[in-house]
Nucleic acid binder design. Structure first.
Lengths: 339, 339
DNA sequence: GTCATTAGCGAAATCGATTTCGTCAATCTG
DNA sequence: CAGATTGACGAAATCGATTTCGCTAATGAC
């Protein structure tokens, strides 16, 4: 019942191979025949079966998005990333398959590669450096083009799209300094993340440039694996002998949590304490006060990731490494330092 | 180089057909042979090519999510829906393909069907009733199982998963009434949406039950196609001779916008005016004051949609229509009516 | 001991496209 | 005008699995 290439061929009195070549615009088909084929195809609404096509062409025209992280923790970012990827993929007539639960399982990644279900993958939130390199090598061995996102992977052979976290942290820190702050708290994550190192470097650089001494007691490493680590992190800063007058939290959700904790304790933001986050998620714009943050365009990273992946699929030999600028969103949660 | 079923067969000295049958647990293969095949498959890391499998089985083990709406307008909902769908799909070893830009194009939908790329589709945000029925009929003609979401489609032949919008509006209205409000504004959308009708019915029912007369001047239809219609809508309510003391906005983003407009004008929420929205998106929890809303579990709807789709794919003849309960999130943006 | 079953396996067809290669006629070359 | 080239098309192989069908040997029935 469903219509195949043979139906078109029979109807026109030509061979199926001719129909195929006409549809794929090969040059050993006359213009007239192409016209006739295309007309009939339109008329009958013929569409090649995807499976048959992929099997023969050894190409699926699909790409995968592998979310290598508990998905609920990265919802906001994903909500922007996916439209970006989808829009760009669409332009190249690629389809997008979502893989949400192969976190940390090389076996599943290998299966994915060998099934040849996709022509390439975008890996969102790679694990720590060592694991990421191992993952990249696995993918390469399996001939699966891939791009990591949104983290820098300091290794020559690995393609990634990242945001310029160092610049973001530097801008944000300088913003605090410009407001008169001298004791600026900085939340860090477990050491395994490049993003953490980059931001820390930016923070430090801004301090140096302003001639402010780096104080280890203003920097706290949070254990992000704990359920309500946001509360603990906030308290850590406040319990210092000389608490900071401004705090840079590693992510917006944590900063938002800090906003309400501050309110509960009668700490006025920004009068008594300035608070800022990173990522510029949607919610950060509607808090009271609105949260100062550093915005990375997830949509833009998505577009770029697809473009890079396409180049790799088309055989680019050299890895692609891009770092996108970020933008400081100076809003109401940061203000002049108390004098 | 990549390893195929023939490699496994050769290595074991059996026929490819035997390998296939062993892997698919057919019963005309001895237990011993199954063991041997599976061991070799594990050892060599063999994974069947997806395209070859789909082509022969006429089944792709993939489902599609068709987002029939400008994606940026439904980001928050999608951010919850997709994990729900993905998690449930995963359980049945289904993969999820995203289609974001076939809005309103029957041609593209038809192509999708005929390519047999997916075994079924979940259509998020169907268009208005007439178009939805037409779309459903198109899909049925093309033998493509489908479920609509998250709207009721009052037609016997159409499968859908919806939230109980009538109940939500009723609960929310009663909440306002309990707080002493008598003039309760209600924002409507263009008439084409069932959700609008359902909520309106719930609103009306709550009024009736409380013996409060329905006043047309407290109900305003917003033109959601305009860019900043939120502002206009808010002003419409305030410009009434007798403005409402509480307003139910159709969506959370609009309600959130109303919160800041109120602040700009020195209207205290909830002291002077109570404001509530619908959908219970993440952002609604962090506004100041936090927004009262009616929450629909997008994740749950996603799970259910996949389950229903599976039943339809497996040949269920009768359409599946489910309405999920919603939950009132009574928060700080609603309070006692001014006396 | 004979005949009917059954269990287990393999050969070959099949899914529906694309690609390679060969054929034939028309055109060009000198 | 003979021979080389080109243009347009078709036959058949191919991608890699699954499924059908037939065969053989082993088991069972009586």
């Amino acid at each position: 019942m469903p219509i195949t290439i043979d139906d078109i061929a029979t109807r026109l009195g030509v061979a199926p191979s001719t129909v195929s070549k006409a549809l794929n615009d090969r040059d050993d088909v006359s213009a007239r025949t192409k016209q006739r084929v295309k007309a009939t195809v339109r008329e009958l609404g013929y569409q090649p079966r995807a499976a048959a096509r992929s099997l023969r062409r050894q190409r699926s025209d699909k790409i995968g998005l592998v979310v290598n992280y508990p998905i609920h923790m990265v919802r906001d970012f994903l909500a922007e990333l996916i439209p970006g990827i989808a829009a760009r993929a669409e332009e190249s007539e690629l389809h997008l398959i979502l893989y949400t639960s192969m976190a940390g399982s090389p076996e599943r990644v290998k299966s994915l590669c060998r099934s040849r279900e996709v022509d390439g993958v975008i890996v969102a939130w790679p694990p720590d450096f060592a694991e990421t390199v191992a993952l990249s090598q696995l993918l390469s061995r399996e001939d699966m083009p891939h791009v990591f996102l949104p983290r820098r992977v300091p290794h020559d052979c690995v393609s990634y799209i990242a945001a310029d976290h160092a610049q973001g942290a530097r801008d944000l820190t300088r913003h605090m300094i410009d407001l008169g702050h001298r004791r600026i708290g900085f939340e860090r994550l477990p050491e395994v993340y490049e993003t953490d190192r980059d931001r820390h470097a930016g923070y430090r650089q801004a301090l140096d440039e302003a001639g402010i001494a780096y104080r280890a007691d203003l920097v706290a490493r949070a254990d992000s694996s704990q359920p309500d680590y946001a509360t603990r992190s906030f308290e850590t800063f406040l319990s210092r002998p000389q608490p900071p007058t401004a705090i840079l939290f590693f992510t917006d959700p944590v900063a938002i949590r800090a906003l309400s904790l501050a309110k509960e304790r009668g700490i006025r933001v920004p009068d008594d304490l300035s608070i800022a986050g990173f990522d510029g998620i949607m919610s950060s714009g509607v808090t009271e006060p609105a949260l100062t943050s550093v915005w990375q365009s997830a949509a833009e990273m998505g577009r770029l990731a697809v473009e890079s992946l396409l180049r790799l699929i088309d055989g680019a030999a050299t890895p692609i490494q891009r770092t996108l600028p970020v933008q400081l969103l100076a809003r109401a949660s940061t203000g002049d330092a108390a004098t």
